[in-house]
Design a protein around this nucleic acid. Structure first.
Length: 640
DNA sequence: CGTCCGGTTGGGACA
DNA sequence: GTGTCCCAACCGGAC
């Protein structure tokens, strides 16, 4: 019998420590072992990925590659420039593969992709081993233990977890690494279709990461560079990689007071250099840090402190609580599926007639990626929020920190999310989720969608009268406005008295601080003088309007799968002057205020085999992150 | 892990 | 010692 020839397919598990899937692969004692990464067109073109997350991913890939090479100089992370669905069948054949091993993924897109890979493996006679390692418990098992229902509260998650038993102990880190086999990739290189490219706006050049052949420009299977992807240099100060976080974690764990007494609500959203929290989320996202490893390391400290009769914090506010919330969102997504990241046809998401609603396809019941501009003013508010030009310094500082660094504190996210949705703009949480998707290093589909639902009071949380003030909340943490001075530098020298409401400062104070408070954010200087915009609305006025709107929507009591939401008769449940596009008795499905049939652009994409829900967005380049498999592929003439 | 407002409480200054 | 005023700190309710 021939010895195993194994492909280990790295995805969002870019680590060597505590990887049950990697251990299972190595336990096969393979004759040839191929640790690979398939460069995926979904990530390159169809997901919204900003430059900072690109850099972080590439850091993680290079780091794991170096760790592999340390164990075996003949090996590394072999990055192959072709999507898995077309590439793997060719590799199975060319490399005589007997086993394919990977970590289980729960995102809708990844699930569809993996299903397709599973089928091709089956027909090629390749054995597939899949292990769970991305969450504390296997999310599908959690759902079963929760009577098939999505985990919509931490208690549900904890009860389901208790039924499943203890969180798996970390598995050992490999100390040796088998040789790869022959690396022949002399077969047809199938290029993914580059259109539509939703990351076009972020690029300053064209993407040519697929153009240089399967093994890349040097033929050495290296990870693409930002330059190859057509991106400018990244601006984040954070560096990806398993070895980076393992070093940082050692320092974090050394501070047993901090770990043992950690309470999220007591950490400051205004703290920077250093931040008030651990900043492990980007590493958890890419799997550079195992959540189970982290959980058990924290547990060791808690056990020690309990023995010493020292105080320990508990879920939901403790560090364990944060990891449990993550599992809760994964469990919710695992049960609800692709609809989890949208309102339409989501029975667990309250229907609220937000402005700028997502366009939907009543056939597939998925969002199409575009949104409707029901009100030009709201479109401008969204733009100003996105770019940190709202005229509310606390909000703008957070949004600029997010864009620049790819991260902001959890409570800061609360603040800006509340402001965009139920506590200010009354704009769809799905618009905010898209912006976060692009900008966050730690963007996790389930956590992002779940937290936006939480903050907008459409699911998980419902006390909409708890509304963050863009002035008071920041002041509570940072009276002097140091955070604002750091990220909104035009206000650096503004008097403390007015730093949260600069438009209230007398002209003399403005002149002294070297900035004028004027305009709508479309300019940064006027007559050579730096300017900062006036607030884009009266906050307390907007808060009252939003709260009344939320009351109306809660009274209507509809969810995303309500027949009236599905067929567009939902406005009959609202008075015409309720906030949002609520006039009349009929509108479009979802929260749309009108409904037109496809405008023709959809057909173009249908032609190249793009699934409906990934069809070109109307007007703006936007798309759903959680969508079905990107099947759009085209053949490059000739061989590699 | 909301904010605002109004009412109560309690300590200190002072008559 | 006691009454009164002031104000900050705290608390509970409404939204």
């Amino acid at each position: 019998m021939s010895k195993p020839r194994v492909i280990y397919w790295f995805r969002t598990d870019l680590r060597l420590h505590d990887s049950p899937a990697l251990k299972a692969a190595l336990d096969l004692n393979p004759e040839a072992f191929y640790p690979i990464w398939c460069w995926d067109s979904h990530y390159v073109y169809r997901a919204r990925v900003g430059v900072n997350r690109w850099q972080f991913l590439i850091d993680c890939q290079n780091d794991v590659s170096q760790s592999i090479t340390k164990l075996n100089p003949k090996s590394k992370l072999f990055v192959l420039r072709e999507p898995a669905v077309t590439l793997l069948p060719k590799l199975f054949k060319k490399w005589n593969i007997t086993h394919l091993v990977f970590e289980k993924d729960t995102d809708a897109y990844a699930k569809a992709r993996d299903q397709q890979v599973l089928e091709s493996a089956k027909s090629a006679g390749v054995q597939v081993i899949i292990k769970s390692g991305r969450t504390l418990w296997d999310s599908d098992e959690i759902v079963k233990a929760n009577r098939g229902q999505p985990t919509m509260s931490l208690t549900q998650l904890q009860n389901a977890g208790n039924r499943l038993g203890d969180i798996a102990k970390p598995v050992e880190t490999p100390t040796s690494w088998p040789d790869p086999g022959d690396m022949d990739v002399d077969f047809e290189h199938q290029l993914p279709h580059p259109h539509p490219d939703f990351n076009e706006e972020g690029r300053n050049g064209i993407d040519w990461s697929f153009q240089s052949g399967i093994a890349g420009p040097n033929g050495d299977f290296s990870a693409p560079t930002l330059d190859e992807l057509g991106f400018p240099p990244a601006t984040t100060p954070y560096k990806g990689g398993e070895s980076v976080i393992m070093r940082q974690l050692e320092e974090l764990l050394a501070d047993e007071e901090f770990i043992g007494k950690f309470e999220k609500p007591k950490t400051s959203p205004a703290a920077f250099s250093p931040q008030s929290t651990c900043l492990t989320s980007p590493y958890l996202h890419f799997g550079a840090l195992s959540c189970r490893y982290f959980y058990h390391k924290v547990e060791e400290i808690l056990v020690r402190r309990r023995k010493q009769r020292k105080t320990v914090s508990t879920p939901p506010t403790s560090l364990h609580g944060q990891l449990l919330f993550r599992d809760m969102y994964f469990g919710a997504q695992a049960a609800i599926g692709p609809a989890f990241s949208q309102t339409y046809n989501n029975g667990h998401c309250r229907f609220i007639p937000w402005h700028l609603p997502s366009k939907v396809d009543p056939e597939t019941r998925l969002v199409t990626g575009g949104y409707e501009v029901d009100d030009e003013e709201k479109e401008q508010w969204l733009h100003r929020w996105t770019h940190g030009m709202t005229g509310f310094p606390w909000i703008d500082a957070i949004m600029r920190q997010l864009r620049l660094e790819g991260w902001c504190h959890h409570l800061a996210r609360h603040s800006v999310a509340c402001f965009l949705t139920r506590g200010g703009c009354y704009i769809s949480w799905e618009r905010g989720a898209e912006v976060f998707e692009e900008l966050l290093l730690d963007h996790e589909v389930s956590c992002n969608a779940g937290n936006w639902q939480w903050l907008s009071c459409t699911a998980f949380f419902s006390q909409f009268y708890r509304c963050y003030s863009p002035v008071a909340f920041g002041k509570k943490w940072d009276e002097d406005g140091e955070f604002i001075r750091k990220y909104v530098p035009e206000l650096r020298n503004f008097p403390k008295k007015f730093i949260y409401e600069p438009h209230k400062a007398p002209i003399a104070d403005q002149r002294k601080a070297g900035v004028r408070i004027t305009g709508n954010g479309s300019q940064t200087t006027q007559d050579g003088v730096p300017i900062y915009p006036k607030p884009m609305f009266d906050f307390s006025e907007r808060r009252d309007i939003c709260m009344q709107g939320m009351k109306d929507a809660y009274k209507a009591g509809m969810y995303g799968n309500d027949p009236k939401v599905l067929d567009g008769t939902w406005p009959s449940a609202f008075s015409d002057n309720s906030e949002g596009p609520t006039a009349g008795n009929e509108a479009g499905p979802g929260g749309l205020s009108s409904w037109q049939e496809a405008d023709g652009s959809e057909e173009v994409f249908a032609e190249i085999g793009l699934p409906q829900n990934m069809s070109k967005p109307h007007g703006k380049k936007r798309q759903a992150s959680q969508s079905t498999l990107d099947g759009s592929l085209m053949k490059k003439p000739g061989k590699k």
